[in-house]
Amino acid sequence: MQIELLIQKCQNLIGQAVDFVHDFIRQSRSVHIDDLERKWINITLSVIGLMIVIIVLDALIHNIRPPSKVETIDSARLHLSKEFAESNLGVQLDGNGDVIVRMVAGRYSFFPKHIAVPAETKLTLRWVSMDVLHGVHIPMTNMSTMIIPGYVAEITTSFPKPGEYPVLCNEYCGLGHNHMWSNISVIAKEDWKAPVQNFAKKEPDNG
């Protein structure tokens, strides 16, 4: 019943949007636009369209997509969970040999404070918050996401260049927000040694 009402509302909204666009086009045609202005508008819109097309094509070719999975967790009981207990944090290899990084964000640091990961390797980074809303950003990389209490933020990416990078909080979380940071060492693939550690698998959705 609720879904039917929702579908009805969406259909009404789409109808209103189509009517609005038709009215807009009709009114804009009644306004005189100089030829030079028309050329300028067309060139500008073409440039914007080109940029959008490039972004969409590149996303389709490289399978770039924003994380869309919703995974919940009890942020108040992380220490009692198998996956995000303190002994299970950091860098591990899963059953397939893929590198998984589990980090906890809390006022005012990221735990563990220092991790070492291999360069040019697919990494799955799983972030949770133990208190309030945080953001995490690793400068000079594209690793940037919000860490929302009650949810697991998962990003899959790779770090191309070896080096030392800070891990910064980019969402105001309290008076110590400007001091909230940790370190990540990206080590050349051939020099990185996989940690010898038992891993705990992902827990089923608590939501």
């Binding site: 997509r65 990389t141 594209n142 990416t157």
Partner: peptide, 19 residues
């Protein structure tokens, strides 16, 4: 356009693709 292409393919994409 050239500057945008340089920033997108020369800086943003080489920093790692997000999945």
């Amino acid at each position: 356009v050239i500057a945008w292409l340089f920033l997108y393919f020369g800086v943003f994409i080489p920093r790692g693709i997000i999945h």
